[in-house]
Amino acid sequence: MSDELTFHFDVDGENFTSAGHASVKVKKILRELGLDPETIRKVSIAMYEGEINMVIHAGGGEADVSVDDKGVTIVLKDSGPGIEDIDKAMEEGFSTAHDNIRSLGFGAGMGLPNMKRYSDEMNIESTVGEGTTITMKVYY
């Protein structure tokens, strides 16, 4: 795989039921490309948590996935409220999600820690009031 392949997705922030749609698509694409199951699983879970976060906190956003000969890069960009304290947000169990989100099975303060756990590199750029861009890389 010498050429880079890129895929773009719009993440709908209005509908919690459809959250995860882009991650399911990416998982299918990576399977079709014949990537190893462990890489596929890591990418899918990291992206899925990110997608859920964008729906819960930011009213949706955009996801760009690129595949090259070294690994998979996921860029999640939103124009949401931004993250006030990134160190705090990275702590397991810390969450600013509302109770109604917890009743849906998320908002336990595990989203960002899980994204870090499954990616080999993760970078968060966030400005309060402007939005957040998270870049995750998973190497083969």
């Binding site: 919690f16 039921t17 459809s18 959250a19 995860g20 699983r41 879970i45 899925y48 948590e49 859920i52 917890r102 849906l104 099975g105 998320f106 336990a108 303060g109 595990m110 989203g111 820690p113 899980n114 756990r117």
Partner: peptide
């Protein structure tokens, strides 16, 4: 019932028991 807790663990050929019923499960 917390999906992020489920996502923190990985094992092959697993089953999930849950009291939560929605598409995210």
């Amino acid at each position: 019932d917390m999906m992020s807790d489920v996502l923190a663990y990985v094992k092959d050929q697993a089953a999930l028991l849950t009291g939560l019923v929605n598409a995210q499960v």
